[in-house]
Amino acid sequence: MGALETVTVAMVAGALRVSTPFLFVSLGECLTERSGRINLGNEGVLVLGAMVAYATSYHTGNPWLGVVAGAIAGALLGAVHGGVCSLARVNDVAMGIAIMLAGTGIAFFFGKPYVQPVAPQLPRLPLGFWASAPPVKSALSVSPLFFIGLAAAFAMHWFFRATRMGLRVRIVGDSADAARALGLSIDRIRLFATAAGSALAGIGGAFLSLSYPGSWNEGLSSGQGLMAVALVVFARWNPLNCVIAALIFGAAGALGPSLQTVGVTKGYYLFYAAPYVVTLVILAATVRPGRALRGMPGELSIGR
C-alpha cells in the first residue's frame, strides 16, 4: 500500500474505532445542553461508566450487562449533577468540575481490583468479510455500539423535532420564562435531560473499557468527556452533526500514529494535537462575531 492509502485507511479505521466514545458523550452533552444546562462532569461520568461496565462484565460474564450498568452508573451521577444544579444559584460549570472529580475518584477507588483481571469484551461486526486486505478487514470490524450510537443520534434528532417531550426540552433550554409561562416543570425536565445525557456518556465509557481500547485502567480516558463540550459547540447542538464531529475527531486522532508508520516521524506531538487545531479552526471560521451561535440554547450559562 502506498503511504497516502495507508494513512487514509488508518484514518477511516480510526474514525470507526476512536469516534464511538466521542459520539456517545457528545450526544449526551447535546441532550443536556439543549435543556439549558452544561455538564463538564461527563468526563467523570465516562470514567465511572468505563469502570462499572468493566467490573460488571467481569463478574457476570456478559459485556452487554456491563454496558447497561455503565449507563445506569452514568445516569445516577448525572442525576446528582442535575439535582444539585436545580438548586437556586448553583453554578453548573463549577458543579460539573466537582462531579468530574467525584466520578473519577469513585471510579479509581473502586476500580483498583479490576485493573488486573480480563473482562469479556463486546463482540464486533465483521463488515469487512468481503475484503482480502487485512487492514481493510480490520478497519471494518466495527463495534455494534457504533451503530447504536448512530441510531441514538437519529433518534435524538427525531426526538427534538417531532415529539412533545423533545419540544419541552427545547423550550426549557431556550427560554425559562416561556417554559414557566407554559407551566413546564423546568427542574424536572433538566434533571431528566442531565441524567439521560449522562447515561449516554456512561455508555461511551463502557465502549472504552469493553471495546476499544478494551481494558480498564486509570489512564483510560484522555479527556474525551471534556472535549464533548467542544464537540457539541462544533456540532451546533444538532445530534446529527455530533456524528460528523465525532467522526472527524476520531479520524484526526488516528493521524499521529499512522503518519509515523509511513515515515513522517518528526513533530508527532503536533500531529497528536491535530484534532484540537481542527476544532479551533472550524469554530473560528464558522461563527459570526456579535451574534449568538446558531442553534445555541438561550438558557445555556456558557453562552452569553
Binding site: V84, M95, I97, A98, L101, A102, G103, G105, F108, F109
Partner: peptide, 17 residues
C-alpha cells in the same frame, strides 16, 4: 490514592451546592 479525590469531590459538590 483515589481516596482523597473522592473526598475532594464530596467537599466541592457540597460547597458549590
Amino acid at each position: 490514592d483515589a481516596t482523597v479525590v473522592v473526598l475532594q469531590g464530596f467537599i466541592f459538590v457540597a460547597i458549590l451546592a
